[in-house]
Amino acid sequence: MLDLRDIKIAMDGGDLAANFVVPARQKLAVLGPSGAGKSTLLDAIAGFRPMHAGTILCDGAEITQSPPEQRPVSILFQDANLFPHLTVARNLGLALRPDGGRLSPDAAQQVAEALTRVGLSGYDDRKPGTLSGGQQGRAALARVLLQARPVILLDEPFAALGPALKVEMLGLVTEVADRLGATVLMVTHDPEDARRFADGVILVADGQAHPPQPTQEFFDDPPRAFVDYVG
């Protein structure tokens, strides 16, 4: 469970405010116009952006002041989710050994299983640059699986993929999230993504991140700000 209590995040064009609870195991789409602060919201939850006010709790524990590396959060960015000079296996291994040490046979087994789960078995020794965009996305998701943290934040990591690949990725995200029992917040520009994948929608517009609304309800009676943006 993720609890945002009256938070205010500094943005270029004024603050972004949010005050709501995300129940555990929910998968939410974060929708809204460009520049409204969708990524800002995720950055604040992940600890990459300071807040003016408010507190963030995760499963009852306050994380407002925690540095990014101490938050129970894994995040995928738009790009640069893998170190280009390290092999896929080495990249994934870092999730289990952040000190970069040698993996135990157990851990190596885990890495291999995670790769199999995302359909990349046998790609251990490849460098990310030799993989397609979809494969890179899958490798990054395999690492999220290994990180096994209760909150997963996705900042449009699949924006550059074609429609078919994106559908495949969303399926994979669902699978990973269900397996971990994790809460997911995914930024997207595409209402279709939200319909396909999300239990609910967080609308970010006009300096406000609105509380999540069930997906069906949201699209049946879309809020004014959303209609303006979709046109």
Partner: peptide, 9 residues
């Protein structure tokens, strides 16, 4: 940011 989210030492 990747370093932080991976908790790399």
């Amino acid at each position: 940011r990747l370093r932080a989210t991976l908790r790399m030492t």
